[in-house]
Amino acid sequence: MKKYVIASTPILLGVICIIAKVFIGGNVAVDGRLEEPFFLLPIGFLLFFLGIVSLAGVALISMFKKTQVSK
């Protein structure tokens, strides 16, 4: 069960990054530049999809080990 928590941690971190981007938002500087934490979006999506892949990998490995033990 611990391996599923470790594998799903990047999903949680990715969701936190995306939510933080929404709540932090952006503002316009005095000289007209847009200042916003854009880096949170690609990091959030990367962590989210990395978590999905790792969770699927752990589930597949666990499933294959159970089928080999029962034979």
Rank of each mutant, 00 (worst) to 15 (best):
L40I: 12
L40A: 08
F48C: 06
T9Q: 10
N27H: 13
L13F: 14
I6L: 10
G51D: 05
A59M: 11
F39S: 11
I18M: 10
Q68S: 02
F23T: 07
I24T: 05
F48I: 06
T9F: 12
K2P: 11
L12P: 05
F64W: 12
S70L: 01
A29P: 06
S62W: 02
M63D: 03
I16P: 14
F49Q: 10
E35A: 01
I16Y: 14
V53E: 15
T67E: 13
L50N: 02
M1E: 07
E35K: 00
V28G: 02
I24R: 00
F39L: 06
K66A: 15
I19L: 14
L55A: 15
I16F: 11
G14N: 08
L41Q: 01
I61M: 02
K2G: 09
S70P: 00
K65L: 10
A7H: 04
K3Q: 15
F38H: 15
L60C: 00
L12F: 09
V15L: 06
N27C: 06
V30N: 04
T9L: 15
L40G: 10
T67A: 04
F64P: 00
S54H: 10
S62C: 03
C17H: 06
V22F: 14
S8Q: 10
I18F: 04
V5A: 14
P10C: 12
D31Y: 01
V53W: 13
K2I: 03
A56E: 09
V28F: 11
C17G: 09
K65Q: 11
M1S: 08
K65M: 09
I52V: 15
L41P: 00
T67K: 13
S8I: 05
L41Y: 05
I16H: 11
N27V: 06
K66E: 15
Y4G: 06
L13R: 09
A56D: 09
F64I: 14
V28D: 05
V30E: 12
L13N: 08
A7D: 03
D31K: 00
L60Q: 03
S8D: 11
L50S: 02
M63Y: 05
S62H: 07
F39E: 10
I43R: 08
Q68M: 04
I11S: 05
I43H: 07
V22A: 13
A7V: 04
C17S: 13
S70Q: 03
V30S: 04
I6F: 10
F49G: 08
M63G: 03
V28A: 05
T67M: 10
I52N: 07
C17K: 06
I43T: 10
